[in-house]
Design a protein around this nucleic acid. Structure first.
Lengths: 110, 110
DNA sequence: TGATGTTATAATAATTTTAACATAAAAACA
DNA sequence: TGTTTTTATGTTAAAATTATTATAACATCA
């Protein structure tokens, strides 16, 4: 018996960031590459791009800086806004993790 | 900017009860009819039945008592287990509501 | 006995989401 | 100049979810 949850932030009724997108941003920060990040997460590069594109449209701000060619063929990194978004969402997740813990302890179902 | 979430309880990796199913049980309790409950929720009767069927299989217990014919054409009501399940899940939701409130206050995104 | 309103099941259609594939542009570097 | 590795976009295929339609059983009651 296990409690599970999803949490996300909406802006004008559309998802700005959620657990999946959070992981994507963290992986981009870590690897410096959207492609590598997608691979690590087990999603397609195509899908990762769709996520980022939607996030940026909804935020009205750039979240990743990308560059093609160059050493290593190119790469990506988070903008300041991207980093802030990630940080703010991590705070949200912490609250929900605590709620999950409390609720799990109180759960009385065999 | 709004925080949203979903929460559910799994048993052996399958959903036992979540926010949608919780509402369904509450509506059944209130109306005494699966069909009426489904209509109030804006889902099809068919889907409501699928939910109930899956819940009972996973719980290994009856959640609703149903009867066909009779006064009013038939009806349904929650079993003792169904009522307990509902009650336990409502406690879980309360914890998550609190988490949402706290996180909303701390959220710093324009 | 026929109308009623519910439970119940089967089968199909429509929609949405997810995955897969192909192709091109960019720029460093050997 | 060709190779490499990434970003970037378009298109199609597959899978999963959700919605719709049709049909029947049940038992009360007028």
């Amino acid at each position: 018996m296990e409690i599970k949850y999803k949490v996300w932030v909406e802006k004008n009724g559309e998802i700005l960031i959620g657990l999946g997108r959070e992981e994507l941003l963290r992986e981009i920060e870590k690897t410096g590459s959207i492609r590598q990040a997608a691979e690590n997460m087990g999603i397609t590069y195509r899908k990762a791009l769709y996520f980022l594109d939607a996030m940026e449209k909804r935020a009205g701000e750039k979240i990743v800086e990308t560059f093609r060619g160059g050493p290593g063929g190119g790469g990506s990194r988070l903008t300041e806004y991207g980093k802030k978004l990630l940080k703010e969402f991590e705070k949200v997740v912490k609250e929900f993790e605590k709620a999950k813990e409390r609720a799990s302890k109180g759960l009385n179902l065999e």
